[in-house]
Each structure stands twice: as structure tokens, then as C-alpha cells.
Write a protein that binds this DNA or RNA. Structure first.
Lengths: 212, 212
DNA sequence: GTTTGATTTAAACGATCGTTTTAAAAAGTC
DNA sequence: GACTTTTTAAAACGATCGTTTAAATCAAAC
């Protein structure tokens, strides 16, 4: 990985976080990075290939971690269902805990913003990158929510994903936190509470479905 | 309201829903509407004024409804706290129930997409339009969650908003629903479940805070 | 030191963007 | 019917966009 390439990726992440994919401009990115305009196309090809590279570069290890941790937890429970709060924590925390640092927050927001854009190649990338982890967690959720049919489990997982993505996008705008120099302790506390919020949501809204 | 203006607003809504504010193009909008390119600037001024007009035109009655229903419910409870599930329902349902129809879904997605863009005038519009309703519901949440300090209540409300906005953006992509010609009954059932999800999230994640 | 390949640079290309201008058409007023 | 106002129409403006090109610079190998 070239020095120029690294500078481009860092600048691109900030730019995509701020303006999304269509709003981002190659000229701004190269200017932020202090490199020549043509170097993006030289090193990465098109703008589309740049965001693909960036997203894959960041999301792949994230999902690998989520997958490994799930397997570990499943082994620990020896075939029994892993409880919902643990599943939610394993799924949500790796992404959200990055939001505390500046560069982590940029990555998270860039990911949430760009992945939400309804462009053809984004939607197919979305499915490609998240298919494996979605099905792995889907099976775990199914085991943890006996009595729910397949579609109900998928809907619950969509609730979880919606909530997580909503937070990834909305976090920088949370009124009562912005500009407060959020300490790590306070942030962790809010993150714990958020994961608790999601877990309680899944468990609470599943209950009436199980008893029917 | 002119016939041309209506056609522009309808086309603009579809365009903004699909591409967001920066991604939307005046040329596409006028082409969709079947009107001349210059008519957008003639009738609405700039692109920025167009989206402002559209958002205000749609959000104002929505928030008025949410506010009226809250006041009614507060009268019914005669000074006692309105329970969380009712508050969440009053806050969330008016927006989400529009997603079932095509034009409603376009409006909801346009709103979620454009409001999430980190542009200066959008963020100020955001605060202007939602300030009144946020504080009204904030006070109601505070009464329904005794024992939580001010910041904790605000955080809970941010969780709710995050979740709602996440759903507004993510709904058209929910795998197990797309292209299934979702019936009104099934949709209402999912919406009920979603509201239950949020309510359970608030109540569940508040509990450990209250007992401390 | 020369040559070869990789990288950087500056300039340009064609396309699209939001907006403005100027004139034609339509609608309304007396 | 003449006049004024409002609305539409076509064309152009200046700016920015992603991308390509061609020359200049650098690095490494021989």
C-alpha cells in the first residue's frame, strides 16, 4: 500500500462521510489528501471502484470479527441458544464502538451514508458483503427466539439493523452530546444502554409472537 | 397551488427519495414532471428553496397531528404520565404508516434521506421544524420515566428517533418484504411489532437506570 | 550513466449541474 | 381589441464533475 494511496483513502473516508457517494468529489478528496487529481484514477480506477475498495477494506475485518466472536460464543454455549443480548452485542458493538474516535466515526458514518444510497452497485455490494454474516446471525437469532417463524425472525433482525444504521448516521447530531467532549466512560455507558435498548426491543416485541 | 407546481413537487419528491438532495437533479425533476427546466426556479426559486418547501409542506401537518394527538392523550390521563408505548405510537406511527402507499413511501424516504444529509441549511431546518415537537414529547417522556435524569431522557428519545429514521430509510430494502406485494394487514402487523420493539427498548433499557 | 518502468503532474475533454436571460405564449383586466 | 401580468419556452452562462491524455519526474536495475 503506497503512501499516496493511504492518503487518498483517508481523505476519501472523510469526504464520503461528509457528503455521501454522489455528493463526494474526487477533486475535494485529492485536495484533502494533498495529491494530484489524476492519482485517484491512477491508483484506484473509477470513483465507484474507490468506494468499493474503501468499504471492503473496512467492512471485511469488521464482519470477520463479528463472525469469529459469534462462533466462539456458540461454542461456549455448546449447541444451546446464545441469548439475545449477547447476539445483539456481538453484532452491534464492533461497528458502534468505533464512533468515539474521529477517524473511526468518519468510517462509520461514511459506511452508513454510502451504503444507504440506492445505487445499483451499492445495493449489490451490500448484499455481497453482508450475506454471510446475516445468515450466520439469522440462524443464531432463530435458535434464540423459538416459536417465531422464519419471516418473523428476519423482521426482528431488520429492526436491529435499522436501529444500528440509524444510530450510525444520527450519532453526530445527537443534541445532548455534540460538542461536549464526550469521555470514553460516558460513551461506553451510552453504548451499553443502546445495546440494551435493542436487546430489550427484540425480546419485548417477540414475546407476544411466541405466545401465539 | 398551480398545476405545474403540483407536478413539480410530485416529481421532486420521487427524485429526492431516490437520490437525496445533492444527488437529485433539477433537470431530472422537470423531465419527470413534464415541465420546462426553468419552471422550478420560476416557481420555487433555488433547489434549496424547493426542498425546504417540500419538507415544510409535508412535515408541518405531520407534526401538527403528532402534537394534537399528544395533547388529547395527555388530557385523557389528567396530569398522570402517558405510558411509553402510547407515546412511541403517537410519535412514530404517523410517519411510518405512510410507507405503505407508493407516494407516501416516496415522501417518507425523501424526508429521511434529505434530512440526514449534513448540509448547513438542512441541519438548521431540522432543528427549526422538530424543536417544538421534540420538547413536547421530551416532557412527556420525562414524566413517563421518573428517576431518569434530563440527559438520560434525551438519550432515550434519540434512540427512538434513530430507530424510526433507520426504518424510514431501510424499509424499501427489507429483504423479506420487497416485491411481495405487502398487504395492508401484514404491513400493519409489522408496524405494530416495530412500535412494540421501540417501546420495549425504551422501557427495558430504562429499568436499570431507574433502579440506581 | 542509461534504460526501463512506475508515479506524478498539468492540461484538457465531454458531460452535467443550478441558474439566468430573453423572448414567446397564455391569461387576465379594462 | 389593446394592454398588462403571469407563465412557459429555448438557449445560454459559468461552474463543477469524473475521466483521460501526454509529458515530466522519479526509482530501480543493469
Amino acid at each position: 500500500m503506497n503512501d499516496t494511496q493511504i492518503k487518498i483513502l483517508e481523505a476519501a473516508e472523510a469526504e464520503f462521510a461528509e457528503f455521501g457517494f454522489v455528493g463526494a468529489s474526487i477533486r475535494n478528496i485529492t485536495q484533502r489528501a494533498g495529491v494530484n487529481l489524476a492519482s485517484v484514477n491512477y491508483h484506484f480506477g473509477t470513483k465507484e471502484q474507490l468506494i468499493k475498495h474503501l468499504l471492503l477494506f473496512r467492512i471485511t475485518p469488521l464482519n470477520q470479527l463479528r463472525l469469529n466472536n459469534l462462533h466462539k460464543e456458540q461454542e461456549r454455549h455448546q449447541g444451546e441458544a446464545v441469548p439475545i443480548p449477547i447476539l445483539v452485542n456481538l453484532l452491534v458493538r464492533p461497528a458502534l464502538e468505533k464512533m468515539l474516535t474521529v477517524e473511526g466515526g468518519q468510517f462509520v458514518r461514511a459506511m452508513a451514508r454510502c451504503m444507504s444510497e440506492p445505487l445499483g452497485f451499492i445495493e449489490s455490494l451490500d448484499r455481497d458483503v453482508f450475506h454471510e454474516i446475516f445468515t450466520a446471525y439469522y440462524l443464531a437469532f432463530q435458535k434464540a427466539l423459538p416459536g417465531l417463524d422464519e419471516q418473523a425472525v428476519a423482521i426482528q433482525m431488520n429492526f436491529v439493523v435499522c436501529t444500528m444504521v440509524g444510530m450510525m448516521m444520527h450519532f453526530p447530531r445527537m443534541d445532548n452530546l455534540r460538542g461536549k467532549n464526550l469521555s470514553k466512560e460516558k460513551f461506553d455507558q451510552i453504548l451499553d444502554q443502546f445495546i440494551d435498548f435493542i436487546s430489550s426491543g427484540v425480546e419485548g416485541s417477540s414475546q407476544c409472537l411466541i405466545h401465539s
